Computed example of a mutant assay.
Amino acid sequence: MIAVDEHTSIGCWVHGISAQDIEITVPDTSLIPDVFMLTSSPLDPLKVCCTLWRTDETIGARFR
């Protein structure tokens, strides 16, 4: 899940992950800010991510 703000979360599909970077797919990347919080069971409870690049449905980001 991507936390957009205190009240909004968007589901995502994580399909590329390393120690520093992650690649995720969402229905519409324009809804995701350049800095966002990501929660996922394989990750620590919460990761702050900075967007490196984006297409219409995919975001490449780096963990802060």
Rank of each mutant, 00 (worst) to 15 (best):
E57A: 08
D34T: 12
T25D: 15
D21H: 14
A61R: 11
K47T: 08
C12L: 13
S41C: 06
T8F: 02
R62K: 14
T8N: 06
V35Q: 14
I2H: 01
P33G: 09
W13H: 13
I10L: 10
G60N: 12
F63A: 05
P27K: 08
T25I: 08
V26R: 03
I17R: 09
D56F: 01
F36L: 07
V14I: 15
R64N: 12
I17Y: 04
T58V: 15
T25V: 11
D44M: 13
G60H: 08
D56Q: 09
T25P: 04
S18A: 07
P42A: 04
D5Y: 00
E23D: 06
A3W: 01
L38Y: 01
S40E: 10
A61P: 10
C12F: 09
I17V: 15
E23N: 04
P33M: 09
C50P: 00
T58P: 03
C49F: 01
V35W: 01
T25Q: 15
E6Q: 11
P45E: 12
M1I: 05
A61D: 12
D5G: 03
S18L: 07
Q20T: 14
I59T: 06
R54P: 08
G60F: 05
D21N: 14
C50R: 15
L46Y: 09
S41Q: 12
L31A: 06
D44L: 13
R64D: 14
V35N: 11
I59H: 00
P42E: 08
S41P: 13
E23A: 13
T55I: 04
E57N: 15
L43E: 03
C50W: 03
G16M: 07
R54D: 06
D34C: 05
L52W: 02
E23H: 07
I22A: 14
S41M: 13
L46W: 07
H7W: 11
H7L: 12
T55M: 05
M1C: 02
E23P: 03
H15N: 07
H15V: 02
P45T: 13
G60D: 08
F36K: 07
A3R: 10
V14H: 04
I2G: 02
P27S: 13
D56M: 03
T51Q: 12
I17C: 10
I2S: 05
R54T: 09
L52Y: 03
L38D: 06
D5Q: 02
H7M: 10
C49T: 04
R54M: 09
P27T: 11
C50Y: 04
C50K: 15
S40I: 06
W13K: 12
P45L: 14
R64Q: 15
I59N: 01
P42Q: 06
G11Y: 05
P45Y: 13
K47G: 08
